[in-house]
Amino acid sequence: MSRDELSLQYHGLFLPKETHSQDSLKFAEDFKFEDSDVIAVTFPKSGTVWMQEILPLILNEGDLTPVQTIPNWDRVPWLEETRLALVMDQLKSPRALVTHFLYDLMPASFHQSKAKIIYVMRNPKDVIVSFYYFHQMAAFLEDPGTFDEFLDKFLDGKLAFGKWTDHVKSWRKPELGDRILYITYEEMKEDLPTALRKISRFLGKNLREEVIQKIAENCSFTVMKNNPMSNFSLVPKVYMDSDKSPFLRKGVAGDWKNHFTSEQLSHLNSVITKELDGFTLPWSLN
Rank of each mutant, 00 (worst) to 15 (best):
E81D: 12
R208C: 00
L203K: 05
V127C: 11
D277K: 10
E142Q: 13
D74N: 07
Y132W: 14
G204Y: 04
A28C: 14
V49W: 07
L97D: 05
N258P: 01
I39A: 01
P174E: 10
E209Y: 09
L13Y: 10
F147H: 13
V238C: 14
H111D: 12
D143T: 13
F14Q: 09
D35Y: 02
H111T: 12
A96N: 02
Y239S: 12
T65V: 08
L59G: 02
L207Q: 01
W73H: 11
M224H: 14
S242P: 04
K158C: 11
Y103H: 13
L8P: 03
A195I: 09
W78Q: 08
D241S: 08
K114C: 04
A253E: 06
K17P: 00
L15A: 12
L91P: 00
L6A: 03
K257W: 00
L196K: 01
G62A: 01
H167R: 04
I70E: 03
D4C: 02
V129K: 10
S170Q: 03
A253T: 14
Q9M: 07
L57D: 09
W283N: 03
G254E: 07
V49A: 10
E275C: 02
Q112G: 13
P16R: 09
P282Q: 11
K214M: 04
V238R: 15
C219E: 00
N72H: 15
T69I: 00
G145L: 10
I39E: 04
L97Y: 08
Q52Y: 05
L196T: 10
I180A: 00
K173F: 02
D241L: 14
H259N: 11
E61H: 01
N72E: 12
D166N: 15
H167E: 09
F27Y: 06
A253C: 11
A108R: 15
E29L: 03
A160P: 10
V252F: 00
T65F: 05
E149L: 12
T273A: 14
V129D: 11
K189W: 03
K45A: 02
L141Y: 15
L265Y: 03
P16S: 15
Q52W: 01
I183T: 11
E61M: 02
E81R: 15
M106K: 07
